[in-house]
């Protein structure tokens, strides 16, 4: 049913879910979840070959997605629930005792859609490399997707994986970075400059494109191009230019809402800016 809605309306509902989940939990990470909403909406509701009903943790015969920036769990859980991996009502359990929706994604309680725990940053790209190797060894033509944060690229392991993926010619690996320019302590440029991120990835031997991470058609187009270029022997990096806290005016463009929950009043204000489309959980 969700699939019948335009992507923009799905994205709007997911943003409502994010704000409501974080408010109900009293903690969580709304800023990056809102900035990466359009990327994951385009991926899960348009471009990815996946099967929510027949999901298996090993991802055989399907595309696989890894969330490296585990603190983006609110958007991940909403996207998964709205895709049909588990009941949307379960979103209300986010960060509560006994929930499958842990603060950062976990596989311990068997939440469908999550292949690997994440949260300690910088590890998901390596994991995605491993899955991409398996698909190649098995002769599968499916893709492995991974989403990292931009601040996360300060972790050295990201660059270990960058070198590895290029060396091993993992052209079935499509990485995306939610490039919102903000992290917990402030703008990337103040905390630890990333420099010319595009040039860095190119220098590491990747195919790199920069796209507007809030333009759903543009996101779809760059993902399709990345898939079509699989024969060139290079891993793909889609640098998605986004805005922290996107679509909630008082959260936009600032690091202050990286990991803070809105109170009741703030939540109402946020929700007044986000159209309810599919229906709240």
């Amino acid at each position: 049913m969700t699939q019948n809605f335009p992507l923009s309306e799905i994205a709007s509902q997911i943003r409502r879910d994010i704000v409501r989940m974080v408010n109900m939990a009293g903690s969580g990470h709304p800023g990056g979840s809102l900035s990466s909403t359009d990327i994951l909406t385009a991926l899960f509701f348009s471009e990815m070959n996946h099967d929510p009903a027949g999901w298996s943790r090993d991802g055989k015969g399907r595309d696989m997605f890894f969330l490296s920036a585990g603190h983006l769990s609110p958007v991940m859980y909403s996207v998964l629930a709205r895709s049909g991996y588990f009941p949307v009502s379960e979103l209300a359990s986010f960060r509560k005792l006994g929930s499958r929706l842990q603060g950062h994604p976990s596989v311990e309680r068997g939440l469908p859609g999550i292949h690997m725990a994440s949260g300690s940053l910088g590890q998901g790209l390596s994991v995605a490399c491993g899955a991409a190797l398996t698909k190649r060894l098995d002769g599968e033509d499916n893709f492995v997707f991974v989403l990292t944060g931009d601040g996360e690229c300060q972790e050295g392991q990201i660059w270990e994986a960058a070198m590895f993926a290029a060396h091993h010619k993992l052209s079935n690996l499509i990485a995306m970075t939610d490039w919102n320019g903000q992290q917990i302590d402030g703008p990337n440029d103040q905390v630890m400059s990333l420099g010319d991120l595009k040039a860095k990835w190119i220098a590491f031997g990747w195919d790199v494109v920069v796209a507007d991470g809030h333009d759903l058609e543009a996101i779809k187009a760059v993902i399709r191009s990345a898939k079509e270029a699989r024969e060139d022997g290079k891993p793909k990096m889609l640098l998605m230019k986004t805005e922290m806290g996107r679509s909630v005016d008082f959260m936009e463009g600032t690091h202050h809402w990286h990991g803070k929950a809105p109170n009741k009043e703030q939540t109402e204000k946020a929700l007044s800016q986000l159209k309810e489309t599919i229906g709240d959980f």
């Binding site: 090993d58 490399c129 491993g130 899955a131 398996t134 590895f164 091993h168």
Partner: peptide, 26 residues
């Protein structure tokens, strides 16, 4: 050789890659 994966001097990535191989069935 096709099942031997040289990781270079980068152990953190090696462990993550191994985990990715394992979760997908290897």
């Amino acid at each position: 050789p096709e099942r031997f994966i040289q990781c270079g001097i980068a152990e953190a990535n090696m462990i993550g890659t191994a985990a990715g191989l394992a979760v997908s069935g290897k």
